[in-house]
């Protein structure tokens, strides 16, 4: 019986090594994104802080468990002690976690306050969730549009389709018309839904907020770096919940202004120009 256990342990070690060897490939992502907003960076930093605290505590706890398992074996002739409590030890291991938690609360609370602070925003974006698409409205600009799953992904995702997902660029992470936002601008978003609950989530921004019919939730983000950022609905909203992605193109302020002006103008020449900007 002991041999089975030993073999299993070898298998476990092999598996652990295998897992450690994989991160070289990009798709074997292991960790949270650091993102492109201060909120995302804060979320990442707190995530890593708690992770390391857990790791250190884990080394202590698992270490003593493993020590006990290895050393205090009957097969090694261990004779059981009879103690059943130790007040000092119990006080210490109640106080230490309490102190750690106080520390965590102390560093986390300010972050939560900053995330909640939507003052001094420069523009407002209204996002509405529908089954199964997003509507974006630039408040005060009299411009809004719908954003739905890209046709290429939509064709490939049908049950029994012969299109391999790997052959579709940004499979399930692409839309017909992305949201465009300016870089370096504090954007306040208002979030609601028209039918059922949805949640607007872009990991790179660390924005995840529920869109609720009858509610207008608000929050903010400020993108620090131009680029295309992808996310998707994060609250179960029915059969096509998995198929309402979010794509945000963050561009420099001037480019954004030009794009918005072009969208609002019915002139075909400007529309062509805007298409050129969009393709850029």
């Amino acid at each position: 019986m002991h041999r089975v256990a030993t073999n299993a342990r070898h298998l476990l070690t092999g598996l652990a090594l295998g897992v450690l060897a994989f991160p070289a490939q990009a798709a074997w992502t292991l960790n949270m994104t650091q993102g492109v907003t201060s909120t995302a960076q804060e979320a990442y930093d707190l995530h890593m802080l708690v992770f390391w605290i857990c790791t250190i505590v884990g080394i202590g706890v698992f270490g003593s468990m493993i020590y006990a398992i290895v050393v205090f074996r009957k097969s090694k002739g261990a004779v059981p002690a009879t103690f059943s409590h130790n007040t000092n030890a119990e006080i210490i291991w109640t106080v230490i976690p309490t102190l750690i938690l106080f520390y965590l609360g102390y560093v986390t609370a300010p972050a939560l306050i900053r995330i909640d602070d939507t003052r001094n925003s420069e523009m407002t974006l209204k996002i509405t969730g529908y089954q199964w698409k997003w509507q974006y409205e630039y408040v005060g600009q009299d411009y809004s549009f719908f954003s739905t799953l890209a046709a290429s992904s939509n064709a490939a995702r049908q049950l029994g389709s012969d299109i391999a997902p790997a052959s579709v660029e940004n499979y399930l992470r692409d839309v017909d018309k992305p949201l465009v936002v300016p870089v370096g601008v504090k954007i306040r978003y208002l979030l609601t839904a028209n039918d059922v609950l949805h949640a607007w989530w872009v990991p790179a921004f660390s924005v995840k907020r529920d869109a609720i019919p009858g509610y207008v939730n608000e929050g903010w983000f400020k993108v620090d770096k131009a680029g295309v950022y992808r996310g998707q609905c994060a609250e179960l909203c029915g059969k096509d919940h998995g198929f309402m992605p979010i794509v945000v193109r963050a561009v420099p302020r001037a480019e954004f202004d030009a794009w918005l002006a072009a969208q609002k103008s019915p002139s075909p020449a400007v529309a062509v120009a805007s298409a050129a900007v969009a393709a850029n």
């Binding site: 256990a5 706890v61 003593s64 468990m65 006990a68 398992i69 205090f72 074996r73 009957k74 097969s75 261990a78 004779v79 059981p80 002690a81 103690f83 130790n86 030890a89 119990e90 291991w93 109640t94 976690p97 309490t98 938690l101 965590l104 609360g105």
Partner: peptide, 25 residues
């Protein structure tokens, strides 16, 4: 976060139960 305290106490106590015991598996 407070829940972590009684939960940690439990885990520590189970570990301490094994400590200087005579374990079989």
């Amino acid at each position: 976060m407070l829940i972590a305290i009684p939960t940690a106490v439990k885990v520590f106590n189970w570990t301490a139960t094994m400590w200087r015991g005579s374990l079989t598996f």
